[in-house]
Design a protein around this nucleic acid. Structure first.
Lengths: 204, 204
DNA sequence: AAAAATACTGAATATATGTACAGTATAATA
DNA sequence: TATTATACTGTACATATATTCAGTATTTTT
């Protein structure tokens, strides 16, 4: 296996993190979005280079037909990505927000989980969630009132208490007096539940 | 999670096997090919049923945007004991104080550590340390002002901010208005530093 | 010094793919 | 009994996506 360049490594990391988070590989356009390229061909050429060097395989003609060839611990690796919570901008996967990954047992929290989310701000301070804490996020839309959820409205991602008022209205409640409740009318606004918190990790 | 029908189970199996084999999820047409359906809508309706029942999630508009909600299990690495913070008695490794153990990598926190301490009370609430949180404790007496320490006076163990006033006086400061500072005069009282916090773990 | 690899932008296009619509039929449920 | 869920076939179409072609520029290798 030939040497990998730093840019190619970024692309490879991007692919692996994308798969870990979404469950399926990225398109050329997805890679461009994550890494800031402006032409799909930028991703294409990197992919071909990575294929040539044996890091990935590409199924010709198939959409998202990228498969990472990993000799190490490819299947159930215990590596979980840390994803930065950005107040605005592209939803949570921007490459520059990804710190690194954490190796950790799958049964580490009571429920299994998918990735760590790095917290910005103090809107959940009274729930004991502080800046730079890592929330263990389980990807699910099955959330209940009182759950701490990771919610996305347009391109803004927030962590809040989930509270369904009725079939049309959901309230996202902070745990900090200085912040206001967010009321979402599902008939006029879109709310996407990315997942819920199943644990927290803080490293001093 | 509702009951799954046998046909839906076949589709779910098909998806998982396809991912395992190729590294990416199948299209509707792929599922039809695998299971012998003749219309992509056969796959579509099954997918929607599986989504509705919570077995998969589907990213709208994205090709191969299927993600199986689930998780296998396996783990390795070291065992760390969880020790209850008891009002009387020091947090020793005495068998009777050990509630259970957690498997976790050695380099999990920035510093290495020795055991988990289960928190009682809310005296450190404003530091984001809540009841039943697990503090990763490194056994050491080398602590500095501002460190969160595990301190023992007589038989009482507490978690507080460490603040040395001078050679004879140490203040133990809670992070909660409802609690008072503890001033320790080393000439008249004994203070034993059991260790310091190097991280925190919370399991919802 | 020439060739090849790397690292991109930008535009164009064939096709791969999700998804809606129109049907048919049977079993389960209220 | 009416309604809903399950389980399909078949057609159609907008768009998501891979992929090619034409460039530019820098670095590395031969």
């Amino acid at each position: 296996m030939k040497e990998i360049t730093s840019q190619q490594q970024r692309v490879l990391d991007c692919i692996q993190i994308y798969i870990k988070k979404t469950g399926f590989p990225p398109t050329r356009a997805d890679i461009c979005r994550e890494l800031g390229f402006k032409s799909p061909n930028s991703a294409e050429t990197h992919l071909r280079a990575l294929e040539k060097k044996g890091f990935i395989s590409i199924e010709s003609g198939a959409s998202r037909g990228i498969s990472v060839i990993n000799g190490e611990s490819q299947n159930d690796s215990n590596e979980y990505p840390i994803i930065g919570l950005v107040a605005a901008g592209s939803p949570t996967l921007a490459q520059e927000n990804i710190e690194k990954t954490i190796s950790c047992p799958e049964s580490f929290f009571d429920s299994d989980f998918d990735y760590f989310l790095k917290v910005k701000g103090l809107s959940m301070k009274d729930a004991g969630i502080m800046e730079d804490d890592l929330i263990a996020v389980k990807k699910t839309t099955d959330v209940r009132n009182g759950d701490i959820v990771i919610a996305r409205m347009d391109d803004e991602v927030t962590v809040k208490y989930f509270n369904r008022k009725n079939s049309k209205v959901i309230e996202l409640e902070p745990a900090n007096e200085d912040f206001e409740n967010i009321v979402v009318d599902l008939e006029h606004e879109q709310l996407h539940i990315e997942g819920k918190s199943v644990g927290l990790l803080r490293r001093n």
